[in-house]
Simulated scan of single mutants.
Amino acid sequence: MASIGRICAVYIAFFSSSPGHAADNRLVLTGSSTVAPLAAEIGKRFEEQNPSIRVDVQSGGSSRGVADARSGLADLGMASRAPNADETDLQFFTIARDGVGIIVNTNNSVRSLTDEQIVAIYTGKIADWSKAGGAAGRITVVNKAEGRSTLELFLHYFKLKGGDVKAHVIIGENQQAIKTVAGNPGAIGYVSIGSAEYEADHGAHIRLLPMSGVAASVENVRSGSFPLSRPLNLVSKGAPGAVARRFIDFARSRGVHDIVESQFFVPIAP
């Protein structure tokens, strides 16, 4: 299945029980399901260049990444959003940029939706595709679970509150949303543009819709013309430790731009 390529692997290393040994040789990252597959691939290359270090990448949402970084459960959190005002105790390091786009099934005849139509669909005011320019059929609204930064960005952009959304399916990971929409001709969802372009390129039956008249594409995220974009960040509590600092510098270097682009994200300038 195509989505396997995007699912983050977990790399677990077992070390001797001598004090400090595991901390010096294992780097734990938790958080955003958008950042996790990218961090996992960067982690593989980092391990190749640093054979004594193992990188353990676990998803679970940006909120988990921030909480784990803050509590010390993770060496680095992963967050697919900018820092909040109450996170001054944390440091955010951008490793790429991404956008959030609307996806429908490839069998859906709808090619575009206005912002007003998207709001009407997600608030239950439009429940059939025939009311949005498509063929008759019930709309299945796929929404992100609480604690996901993609949900926060979606609600903020469309000026909605969580309680406004009338969802039929609640998902966590980008891959869950893509799988749900790919398998349901009447479904609509919103996901990382990078994840969606990657999966569509690998055969997933989804199509990204334009937003505010701008095509949802990596190139438009790169140019700054797409209206809903975001930074993909690594997060630390205060100054990162030595190994974490090395990983951050590596993840922000030109040496991983090919990995960033292969996963349909936008590299940051050096």
Results as ranks from 00 to 15, higher is better:
R64L: 14
T180L: 00
R138F: 03
L208F: 07
S16N: 08
V214M: 06
P270A: 09
G213A: 06
G241V: 10
F15M: 05
V66R: 01
N50C: 06
A215T: 08
A132I: 12
H202W: 01
E152Y: 06
K125A: 15
R252Y: 03
Q176G: 04
A85D: 13
G133W: 01
H168K: 09
L29Q: 00
R45C: 02
I126Y: 08
G43C: 01
S33H: 15
S32Y: 08
G101Q: 00
A36C: 08
R230D: 00
A196I: 02
I7D: 12
S130L: 00
G186T: 04
R64C: 05
D115V: 07
D56C: 07
A2G: 09
S229E: 05
G101K: 00
L90K: 04
Q91C: 12
S33Q: 10
T106C: 04
R246T: 12
G43Y: 00
A187Q: 05
I193V: 12
I42F: 05
N84I: 08
S80Y: 01
D115I: 02
I259Q: 00
V191S: 01
I4S: 13
A167R: 11
F264Y: 11
I7R: 09
P227S: 06
S17M: 05
T30N: 04
T34V: 15
E173W: 01
R148I: 06
V181T: 03
E199I: 02
A120V: 00
K131H: 09
S17A: 11
I248W: 04
R70L: 13
R45M: 05
Y190R: 03
H21V: 14
S63F: 12
T30K: 11
P37Y: 00
H168S: 13
G31H: 03
E197L: 08
V142S: 12
I139L: 03
A132T: 11
F46S: 05
T30S: 14
A69I: 00
R246H: 07
D258E: 08
P240N: 09
A182G: 13
V119W: 01
A67V: 10
